[in-house]
Design a protein around this nucleic acid. Structure first.
Lengths: 229, 229
DNA sequence: GTCCTAAACTGGCCAGGCCACCAAGTCATC
DNA sequence: GATGACTTGGTGGCCTGGCCAGTTTAGGAC
């Protein structure tokens, strides 16, 4: 290997403080929900000015690691995986995508999540799904249901990715959803999915979700879907 | 559905500016490498003070979306997926549960990508895979091969997802890869996958990739994997 | 033309201050 | 005595203005 010098990455004060606080959280010296010292105090402890500390805090807030409450204080966030993965949205919104790719990805992920939900959902989660089925606003119900299923699957990573797909597909979904007849059939298909999950039948849940997505894809005019799952 | 008020989330000026700049990048109004106006200038344009703008910039820098060069200016970063994902490594350092989720997600996505690659890869892509098999540096070969398969599958969205999993799992993968015996068997399994793709046999490719991942997961000591794909 | 230097520009950091907001204690009311 | 409105300290949000250090560039010496 050639020399390749990549020296000194001289770190700024604010970036250094970010690293420090992250370390303290990983080490357990800071725990979720804990309140940090006030900015004026903490800036003195760290020997940096308040504006610089504020840059540090703002960085960690944007990573969902800290949480600032005006008038109250700055706290360590809950640190649940879903929230920490939220910046993923930006990454995925950059990758080029077509409607076909979107459906292909959904067709891969959602049936699997439905199957996982069938084995892992608790009673409360199933109840929430049933409540979503009854929601009068059909579009809101659709979004909520798919979200609930993803959450019940117990894999924050996949759920976050699906969430991103949902955001990316919002425009095309709005178009599709307004076609007459689509909504009624959607409601029936949704009910079938929830029923399968409620019966704790992963294979049926997977099949029902697959069927549901295939029909939506056809209605949206997507090209042939390559997955044979 | 019950009431569930989660109102107003009043956004701060700095957070709003973060959103704005992200939007401009997604829209293409800002492109990688582009230089932003000087802080004093930009703060005037956005009608916020310089310290507040600096909080905004610092946030985006910590997400590897912007890059500040002292004395020169602030630039839009290259925005390659790996760099954008790096700040999310923090998630992995928090919980072992996340490692299980990672394998679960890979086990879902990679076999599907292998199957897609089997139907869509062109001769050049297959040749590149064979070249990767011959690469002496085993770790580099592993990364490259999985990447090539994802590219050959022809779905940028899914490829990005997989790369996300890859970057997030880098730490744990390094541990696993160093175990004796693991690498040799990995090489054989890789060859089987590429062979299946070369034969244009999606089902075989899917199966070979599934088998490969299951063994890796077992070697890494991951918990039970819920997917029955 | 080449090289060097100095000035102009840019991000890094700081001090000090005002405002909006929250939470807890106080006080009047019932 | 319990309950409600009110006051008060503490907190984050934001700003003005400034100095320093690094980079860039244009002008001048050769």
């Amino acid at each position: 290997m050639t020399a390749e010098f990549t020296p000194v990455h001289r770190s700024s004060a604010a970036a250094e403080a970010v690293r420090l606080i992250q370390e303290m959280i990983v080490d357990g010296r800071l725990t979720p929900g804990q309140r940090l010292p006030a900015e004026r105090e903490l800036s003195e402890m760290l020997r940096i000015s308040r504006p610089t500390l504020r840059e540090t805090i703002r960085s960690l807030v944007s990573l969902n690691i800290l949480e600032s409450r005006h008038g109250s204080g700055t706290y360590v966030a809950a640190l649940d995986t879903a929230a920490l993965l939220e910046p993923l949205q930006f990454v995925m919104s950059l990758s080029g995508r077509t409607v076909d790719e979107l459906f292909e990805a959904r067709l891969l992920i959602e049936p699997a999540l439905a199957a996982l939900a069938a084995s892992r959902a608790d009673a409360g989660q199933v109840a929430a799904m049933r409540a979503a089925l009854a929601e009068p606003d059909r579009v809101a119900a659709d979004v909520a249901l798919h979200r609930l299923i993803a959450d019940a699957a117990g894999n924050a990573l996949l759920a976050t990715m699906l969430q991103t797909l949902s955001v990316l597909g919002r425009a095309s979904r709005a178009m599709t959803a307004t076609r007459p007849g689509v909504l009624r059939r959607t409601a029936a298909e949704h009910a079938a999915i929830v029923d399968a999950i409620d019966r704790r039948d992963p294979d049926a849940a997977r099949a029902a979700m697959t069927e549901h997505l295939r029909r939506i894809a056809a209605a949206a005019g997507a090209g042939p879907i390559g997955l044979t799952t």
